[in-house]
Design a protein around this nucleic acid. Structure first.
Lengths: 349, 349
DNA sequence: AGAGTGTTCTTAAACGATTAATGGTGAGAG
DNA sequence: CTCTCACCATTAATCGTTTAAGAACACTCT
């Protein structure tokens, strides 16, 4: 079966309703001071009868705007979409769709060459872009910094960037997590840090140190392990921690994936959670609630982050001005069952 | 800070390299019989110096093609993206990105009105669409059936549709699941069916009956419960099953979410999995492996489904022909720990 | 009657590319 | 010396809209 007959154009509508294309255009745009009610009637009828719908392409060309926003997705562990990106994207759609800004996906992965993505984003096809969780050395970030196009970063913060950033306040979140464990009676608290090439991982590690220091607890270097934010790397890091520093009563992980790895490592050592060791995650990915035990974690408002990023971008597009701002959302403590007071300690004394 | 200076056009490139725009166009398109090497040199240099990139909008207008494909996402439990859709989308990107077909997301949810999505898909902005898991009465499906635009369905099958469909072979999958349980010694096997308004749910239920019948097992109506493919509905359905038909030794669920609900119901009854009752899921969503116990399930090749759908669509776009075909991928049995032989039975006697 | 004012519609020039048709060279053939 | 042909570049039409500028007409006002 063959498909695709030619689209119907404004010219045919004009012909059928006996007016010029200019008039049709005016009617369709409700510029009511430019046509009479009767003309409008005829035009609308023709539109209905022909099933006419304006070509967005022609429209974009003349208006020099596409009303489309590009969402740039970077590679994340062999994949471009994971549950984090998914939620950010959901938030973006939640904001953009009702405002009639379609979304074009720009994947950095699966590209033929490292910068072939440019052909799809620097070609006038989008009015602005949202960079979802770009890494520090991201080509896309590099480009966006210098390109004259509205752009915002969602899910990362770059202290020195000119782009607006929307992210979770991870420093405060980790600080609170550690504080919470301390309040519960823990003192020998370890940290599973992310790759120190990433700003977020450094901030989290620093916040951990800060919290410990403010509580007057001296942290030994052996209390912190480093992973790559992945499950296996978390497991390895935790194994080392258990080996070198078995006296830890609690560990706060830089993200949930590493916490999941940690769980495996802990069980393999024959220890129990939270009886022998308490564990905190970060992110609250979908699987966190299904862990054994369900993971206590700091929840990132990913959906909100996406929506806010979209809001900033559209603002930027519509005003033509870019404000250098960093918006941080607080994380939410989600109490489940992987944390308990340390053995032999009574809470809050 | 203000942004957005005017884009550089082909005219400027022509001016700078001292040739006509036609020549520039020819050079850029490598129509090597239409220009001399020296001219090409000059043109490319101008292009580099000006940082010129062709306007995809203007290009689309004249070529009457956008090289963009639309992915239509339907509402799924308060959200447009879930792990299923995510994987299908990943598959789509995997296929389309390297072939230079950008993806435009068309969400049915968050729209101002039920058919305002049409303004973003029936406006010449996409060369074709992939409908991801549309429901039977989907407006988008309705539209795609009659519109003269290449379209394929991913993640659903409509026996009576004119559109090519790519999906998992769920009938065979459920049949195999039931068969597997039977081989293991189970006979009193229940089924948690999905909403019977959906084709997939009906097919799965039917396959369950078929498998039981072929094994000579008489199924009582009370052995099957119906849910809405959601966790809570699965829990409720399982509760009823446990109440009315406590002698079941195994249950195969229509999807993983309902299986998760079933797990809760079973535990609340004080029963163990798989010792007291075996449970099988369907889909293998990300969380399935983190369940307690890890869920044995039939894995859907969602990524493959997405990629295949993209392949069919691009074929359709490039040939202009649509074949009425249904492609079914087999599901894969993922053995984890929620299934065991029935109590007191020996395997394979 | 002529000028001024509104209303309603049309004309025509964009927007930035592609491409068929055309033109102007110089070389080789007759 | 002209004709043909290949080669290379240009001209101009085109895609489907928007919109500024202008035209036609009916009023009102002086």
């Amino acid at each position: 079966m063959s498909i695709r007959r030619k689209r119907c154009t404004i010219k045919e509508v004009a012909a059928r309703s006996g007016v010029s294309v200019a008039t049709v255009s005016n009617v369709l745009q409700n510029k009511s001071h430019l046509y009479s009610p009767e003309t409008a009637q005829r035009v609308w009828q023709a539109v209905r009868e022909l099933g006419y719908r304006p070509s967005s392409v022609a429209r974009s060309l003349i208006r020099q705007r596409t009303d489309t926003i590009g969402v740039i997705l970077e590679e994340r562990q062999e994949v471009v979409l994971d549950s984090y990106v998914m939620w950010v994207l959901e938030g973006i759609l939640e904001y953009t769709v009702p405002r009639n800004y379609p979304v074009k996906i720009i994947s950095m992965m699966y590209q033929q060459s490292p910068d072939s993505f440019l052909a799809h984003v620097d070609d006038g096809s989008v009015d602005g872009v949202i960079l979802v969780a770009p890494r520090t050395h991201s080509v896309a970030l590099q480009w966006a910094q210098h390109a004259d196009i509205p752009a915002v970063v969602a899910g990362s913060t770059f202290p020195d960037s000119v782009l607006p950033c929307v992210d979770v306040d991870d420093a405060t979140a980790i600080y609170r997590a550690v504080q919470w464990l301390i309040d519960m009676g823990h003192r020998r608290i370890g940290h599973l840090a992310g790759p120190q090439t990433q700003w977020s991982a450094r901030r989290r590690l620093q916040a951990y140190h800060q919290a410990m220091q403010n509580a007057g607890i001296a942290v030994e270097p052996s209390w912190v392990g480093e992973g790559r934010y992945t499950l296996p790397s978390g497991k390895e890091a935790m194994e080392r921690l258990l080996e070198v520093t078995p006296m830890l009563t609690a560990v706060v992980s830089g993200n949930d994936w590493m916490a999941m790895g940690a769980i495996e490592a802990i069980y393999q050592r024959g220890l129990r959670i939270p009886e022998d060791i308490s564990l905190m995650g970060f992110d609250d990915i979908d699987s966190a609630q299904w862990m054994t035990p369900p993971l206590t974690t700091m929840r990132q408002p990913m959906r909100q982050i996406g929506a806010k990023a979209a809001e900033l971008l559209i603002q930027q597009i519509e005003t033509g001005k870019r404000a250098r701002e960093v918006i941080l959302f607080p994380a939410e403590l989600v109490v489940r069952q992987s944390v308990a007071p340390p053995r032999g300690a009574r809470c809050e004394q």
